[in-house]
Amino acid sequence: MNKKLAAALSGAAVVVLTLSGCSSEDEFTVDDWAKKYCDAAKPQIKKEADAEQLIRATASDGKPGDIRTADSKAFQDLSDVYKGYAGAFRTAGTPPVEGGEQLVKEAAAEYDANAKSYLDLKKQVDALDVSDQQEFADGLRPVADGLAKIEQNQSAREKLRSSETGKAMAKQPGCKPAAAQSPAGS
C-alpha cells in the first residue's frame, strides 16, 4: 500500500511541476524575443545613422581625397554595423512564431551579405585615384551602383518586418531609429 501511495504522490508531483513549468510566466514570447534582439541591435542603430550621415555630409563636389576618406570610413562602419545586426539575430535566437527559425536565418544571412558588400565598396573607394577629379567621379559611379544594390537587398528584412516579429520589434525602444532614441534638444 505504501508503494501505491508513494507512486500516486510522485505522479501528482510530476503533474504539478509540469503544469507550473508551462505557465505563461515562463513562456518565451515574441515580445521577449524582440526585446532581446533590439537590446543587442541598439548600439548598431546609432552607428548606422552616423555612417549614413557621414556619406551625406561629404559634399559630392568636394575634394576627392576628402570624399574617399569619408566614404571609406562610412563603408567600414556600415560593414561593422551589418555584422552587428546579424550577430544580434543570432544572439536573440529563434522567435516563437511559425517559421521563426527561417526568418532569422534569412535576415542574418542578408545582413552578412550586405556587410561583405560594404567591405567591397570600401575596397573600391580606397583604390580610386584622387589626383584626377573626373577620373575619381567616374570611379564613384560603380560605387553608387553598389550602394543601390545593397539598398535593394532587403527581402528577408521586409519579410521579418511584416511578420509578428516586426510588430514586436517596432514596440521596443532599442529598435527605434537613432533620432527617436536621443534626448530632446541634442
Rank of each mutant, 00 (worst) to 15 (best):
N2Q: 13
K3N: 14
A7W: 00
A8I: 15
S10F: 07
A12R: 01
A13K: 00
V15C: 05
V16H: 08
T18D: 11
T18P: 03
T18V: 13
L19V: 14
L19E: 11
S20N: 13
S20W: 03
S20V: 11
G21P: 01
G21D: 05
S24A: 13
S24K: 15
F28A: 00
D31V: 04
D31F: 00
D32R: 03
K35H: 12
Y37S: 12
C38F: 06
C38M: 08
C38D: 07
A41Q: 07
K42T: 04
Q44K: 02
I45K: 02
K46W: 02
K47N: 03
K47I: 10
E48M: 15
A49E: 07
A51L: 06
A51V: 04
L54N: 11
R56C: 08
A59C: 06
A59R: 08
A59Y: 04
D61P: 03
K63S: 13
D66M: 07
R68S: 09
K73Y: 00
A74M: 14
F75W: 05
L78E: 06
V81G: 09
Y82Q: 09
G84I: 05
Y85M: 15
G87M: 07
G87S: 13
G87D: 15
G93T: 10
G93H: 11
T94A: 04
P95H: 06
E101V: 15
Q102W: 12
V104Q: 08
A107T: 08
A113G: 07
N114W: 02
K116E: 15
K116C: 15
S117N: 06
S117C: 05
Y118S: 06
D120I: 02
L121R: 04
Q124M: 14
D126G: 15
A127C: 03
A127H: 00
V130M: 01
V130Q: 02
S131Y: 12
Q133N: 04
Q133F: 05
Q134V: 12
Q134E: 12
Q134A: 13
F136D: 07
D138H: 05
D138S: 06
R141I: 11
R141F: 13
A148Q: 09
E164P: 00
G166P: 01
K167E: 15
K167M: 15
A168F: 00
M169N: 08
K171D: 14
K171T: 12
K171Y: 01
K176A: 12
P177V: 12
A178L: 01
A179K: 10
A179H: 07
S182I: 14
P183S: 15
G185F: 07
